[in-house]
């Protein structure tokens, strides 16, 4: 393995190499890990997509909606006695505890999203502010929440908590599937399906689509626009809260004031990749972004390529399909 040893030397050696052998060797584990993180991106991406669909607003503060969910999960678990070691509890007790953490995480995120809408965006809507003002407000809200958390909890991440013992449960293509991977991907996909059905079938969902399509006409047809907007924010918050549980499960040391920033950027990219405003697009974009980043970094030899590859693919896709892969907006989504 002479090429890899050279890579440890200063950057003067080959700065770009393609290692297909390594990609073949690590393909399946990269796939499973990519899908796991992709599911988390997708859950957060839905928050961006729904709000964009309804308000044409990129809610940059959604990453803080997410991180407050992480704090909700963390405080619940540390209150319940979880610590750095895997808890010595039965499966049933762990499930109950995690459900509790999930609920508190969801409440924390949904409440943040609710307050954000009421305090930051609604007053602007009332005054018919230009769209740029919304955007700046979103960025401002993001920083405000971030530094409020900083002042409250300081610069250091919270103590890492282990939710359960991570174990391989079965083997596929010679690669172990771990219990946390299975749980995260399954739960995330189930939630996505429910949301998809909810948007396309339920009365509220129809309302959301109607407002996304044409807010004025929808109002004339008797849809309560304000109620729909707040519901959209809360749904985004609920999904972010669920993502917070899974993220804290994978990355226990991620609960820190600016911990949502990078994930937020990735989730936003996932939403754009799949087609912003499109519910299925968010799922597809999230999973793709997780996979592409993982394949890319293994093929190119190191993790410093992850984001380069992911965003290069994003730009390439947008060159040919400016509306994203699935393209259609929330209002026009079928079914």
């Amino acid at each position: 393995m002479i090429p890899t040893i050279l890579a440890a030397a200063p950057p003067s050696s080959d700065w770009i190499t393609l290692d297909f052998a390594s990609l073949a060797q690590n393909f399946w584990s990269a796939t499973f890990d990519g899908l796991t993180f992709g599911s988390i991106y997708a859950l957060v991406a839905l928050g961006y997509t729904l709000v964009y669909g309804v308000l044409n607003l990129i809610n940059f503060a959604h990453s803080e909606v997410f991180i407050l969910g992480c704090y909700g999960v963390w405080f619940t678990l540390s209150f319940l006695g979880f610590g750095p070691s895997a808890p010595n509890l039965g499966v049933g007790a762990i499930v109950v505890n995690l459900l509790l953490a999930l609920i508190i995480g969801i409440i924390a995120s949904a409440l943040t999203a609710f307050l954000l809408e009421r305090l930051a965006y609604k007053p602007l809507r009332k005054r018919n502010a230009p769209r740029l003002v919304f955007l700046i407000t979103a960025i401002g809200a993001s920083f405000t929440i971030q530094y409020l958390i900083f002042l409250w909890r300081g610069p250091v991440p919270e103590q890492a908590l282990t939710m359960f013992k991570v174990k391989p449960i079965f083997e596929v293509f010679g690669t172990y599937i771990y219990n946390d991977q299975l749980l995260i991907v399954t739960a995330a996909i189930i939630m996505m399906v429910i949301i998809e059905r909810f948007i396309s079938k339920s009365r509220t969902g129809r309302g959301i689509r109607a407002v996304a399509q044409d807010p004025d006409t929808a109002t004339l047809m008797g849809v309560n626009k304000e109620k729909i907007i707040i519901t959209t924010f809360v749904i985004g918050g609920i999904l972010a809260g669920a993502a917070a549980l899974f993220y804290t499960m994978k990355i226990p040391s991620g609960v820190v004031y600016n911990g949502g920033f990078i994930l937020g950027i990735k989730a936003f990219a996932a939403a754009v990749l799949g087609g912003i405003g499109n519910v299925r697009g968010a799922l597809l974009g999230g999973l793709l972004l997780g996979l592409i980043g993982n394949y890319g970094q293994i093929l190119l030899g190191n993790s410093q390529w992850t984001d380069v590859v992911a965003f290069l693919v994003l730009v390439l896709v947008l060159l040919f399909r400016p509306e994203g892969i699935l393209g259609t907006s929330l209002g026009r989504s079928k079914a």
């Binding site: 499966v91 762990i94 499930v95 995690l98 079965f170 399954t186 739960a187 189930i190 429910i194 669920a242």
Partner: peptide
Amino acid sequence: KVMTTLAAAATLGMILGGCAN
């Protein structure tokens, strides 16, 4: 309804993971 369904879905996922555990 959504909240309940979501919670139920989550439970399912967790039990899946839990049983495997």
